[in-house]
């Protein structure tokens, strides 16, 4: 069967199935299980009201449980077994992993990524948001800087591979070096710094995200606070750093953590740019090296990522609970 036909069938089946499930289960609940009886009307309606939310929730909770909750447990369990999955080795995968240099490099690089990318993307996002705030063509500028958000990490990697190309007639970096008389270099092979050249790509993508959110936050600052500062003789820099930034600090933190989480998931850039060579491996790409080859090791790496993400997750949940 051709995938297109299969796709159309799936849409029909999925959508039809969902509609049939929701409609049918509600109908069964109201007409068959707890039909409103003349003598005992209220009781059955109340019973139906208790059950109904779970009818609405069931498909989503089932999918969430199966595709996100179970894997947390399942991955951890699998990571306690050897490569073939038939021998329990407790934390063998973890100890083995931490003793290898490749993993330590990936961990260190990932640490650099987490340190640099969210900071830089938030900084540039805030910069652009502030600069374009009162600009006539600000919206055009913003939407151009926002554009990389629509591009896949693979596409973005290709775009930057072109920028970093060795040939001065292709790569703009080496063209500039050539212009000043320097010999061409391959930025992706310079030890240590090549990590930063890869980070540039993610910063390029994520700045738009930070900008959009921080721009909305800047707009939300009460006008009076700024007017009062102007009347008191504050210069534009003081207004920005002392009046505006403190008021949007909460949003800055949210942007920062959101990008941090993303950094821990993105393997595409390293995979497409260097394949993890030249000491540019990070945890997600390191994990993909072992995927299909050593599931024990792969799940162990994934679980390490999970542990790094955990504090943010807890913080998010606490924030959400505070608002409820």
């Amino acid at each position: 069967m051709s995938p297109i036909l299969q796709g159309i069938l799936t849409i029909a089946f999925g959508v039809g199935g969902c509609v049939a499930y929701f409609y049918g289960s509600n109908w069964v609940l109201d007409k068959v299980i707890f039909p409103p009886k003349p003598d005992d009307n209220g009781r059955n309606i109340n019973r139906a009201t208790i059950v109904r939310p779970w009818l609405f929730l069931f498909p989503a909770m089932f999918a969430l449980g199966l595709y996100l909750v179970y894997p947390v447990v399942g991955s951890f369990y699998r990571s306690l077994f050897n490569r073939a999955g038939d021998e329990f080795i407790a934390f063998g995968n973890y100890t083995q992993m931490f003793s290898e240099e490749g993993f330590r490099i990936a961990l260190f690089n990932n640490f650099l990524w987490v340190l640099v990318v969210p900071a830089a993307a938030t900084f540039f996002g805030l910069l652009v948001a502030q600069l374009t705030d009162k600009l006539k063509w600000g919206n055009i500028a913003k939407s151009l800087i926002f554009m990389p958000m629509a591009i896949s990490f693979v596409g973005a990697s290709l775009i930057w591979k072109f920028v970093y190309a060795n040939d001065p007639d292709i790569g703009i970096i080496n063209a500039l070096r050539d212009f000043f008389g320097a010999a061409p270099v391959d930025p992706l092979q310079i030890p240590f710094w090549n990590n930063f050249f890869l980070m540039v790509i993610l910063i390029w993508i994520q700045t738009g995200f930070a900008m959009v959110i921080l721009s909305a936050a800047l707009r939300g600052i009460p006008e009076e606070t700024i007017e009062a500062a102007i009347i008191d003789g504050a210069n534009p820099f003081q207004i920005f750093f002392k009046i505006k930034v403190p008021q949007i600090m909460g949003t800055i933190v949210v942007v920062w953590t959101t990008i941090t989480i993303l950094v821990l998931k993105v393997f595409d850039i390293v995979y497409a740019m260097t394949g993890g060579n030249f000491d540019t491996e990070i945890l997600p790409s390191y994990m993909m090296d072992y995927m299909f080859r050593d599931d024990g090791r792969a799940t162990a790496v994934a679980f390490v990522i999970m542990i790094i993400v955990l504090p943010v997750m807890i913080w998010n949940i606490r924030q959400a609970r505070k608002e409820m």
Partner: peptide, 27 residues
């Protein structure tokens, strides 16, 4: 809709927002 455990489920959804996909691949 009002039901018991609503708050917990919302918190769970918020928590699951950040679960790394990598975890899900092998299982």
């Amino acid at each position: 809709m009002d039901f018991k455990g609503r708050g917990f489920l919302i918190a769970m959804v918020v928590g699951l927002l950040v679960v790394p996909l990598q975890l899900a691949l092998v299982p």
